[in-house]
């Protein structure tokens, strides 16, 4: 039932059926939008009412899983993280993320970035394999050291940055903001000793030197990861390492076991307020 708060909005959708369509085409579906409705909710409604075969990818519907990246009104965004009202338009144009092959309708093939990401060795590289396999305690790290990579570790691998980057648009060899940002996330982690191995991976035409700071990746990132910053800081690291200006420190050691005696003046827990019947 149309209430005073509802609005009629046209979902202008890019559709492509492999094996049937030679080229993607646009299709319009008009739906009623209520306040707070996200683009993802809108897609579900369209699927329910008029396009049952419409395909897209989504899971968590709360900006965590990174599966619902789409080109929404010309900008790469998460469908679940974008309210229809914030677009301020009666037309919501949704297309699959560009720079990725289209599998079907709004589903991009994200495998290339996952493969490149894997090549960047996105995990702690250290020699103490036994400790890593069977940890005794945590590695020591200060809050300040944590801050050097924390921002980059919020990446949910949604691919929005890859769809926005003009270098990725013309250069299929370029690793792109997501994988490079993640390489820097580990390079700037004081628990890691993989800088030299990752430098080998980053060398050549696919590495950070193809980035010329168009900054689009950071503008569209839905998690505030700022991959453009990570890439520039990575270049700084690489140059200062080449010039031998970078201080090399061994990876953080395992934290010492707590020592001393237990305080005896710790107050007892208050009495239970709920008792079992």
């Amino acid at each position: 039932m149309a209430g005073s708060n509802t609005k009629q909005v046209t979902f202008h959708l890019r559709r492509f059926e492999p094996g049937k369509d030679a080229e993607p085409h646009w299709e319009d579906h008009s739906i009623e939008v209520t306040p707070g409705m996200t683009v993802l909710d809108g897609l579900w409604k369209v699927k329910e009412l008029s396009a049952p075969s419409l395909a897209w990818r989504s899971s968590c519907r709360m900006g965590i899983c990174g599966s619902c990246g789409m080109l929404i009104n010309g900008r790469p965004r998460l469908a679940c993280n974008t309210q229809v009202s914030e677009l301020g338009s009666a037309i919501v144009a949704v297309a699959p993320l560009p720079n990725f092959d289209i599998i079907k309708d709004l589903v991009p093939d994200l495998r290339p970035i996952f493969e490149t990401h894997r090549e960047m060795l996105p995990y702690l590289l250290r020699d103490d394999t036994a400790e890593q396999e069977d940890p005794t305690r945590e590695y020591r790290q200060t809050p300040h050291e944590l801050e050097q990579y924390l921002q980059f570790s919020y990446c949910i691998k949604c691919g929005c940055c890859m769809a926005a980057c003009p270098t990725v648009a013309t250069d299929a060899q370029y690793a792109g903001p997501m994988p490079l940002g993640q390489a820097h996330r580990y390079d700037s982690d004081t628990r890691d000793a993989g800088f030299d191995r990752r430098r080998e991976v980053l060398a050549g035409g696919s590495g950070p030197w193809r980035c010329h700071f168009a900054g689009e990746c950071s503008q569209v990132c839905p998690k505030g990861v700022d991959p453009a910053k990570a890439i520039q800081l990575m270049k700084r690291q690489l140059v200062s390492d080449l010039l031998r200006l970078r201080r090399r420190t061994p990876p953080a050691a395992v934290a010492e076991a707590p020592h001393g005696t237990m305080r005896d003046d710790i107050p007892a827990a208050p009495p239970r307020t709920v008792t079992e019947a």
């Binding site: 699959p96 720079n99 092959d101 289209i102 093939d109 648009a169 700071f213």
Partner: peptide, 21 residues
């Protein structure tokens, strides 16, 4: 592995709603 959708040269001018950089 699907229908190609790389923007090519269009990707150089395609943005602009975001930043002038």
């Amino acid at each position: 592995r699907g229908h190609p959708n790389r923007l090519g040269i269009r990707g150089w001018v395609g943005g602009g709603r975001w930043g002038f950089e």
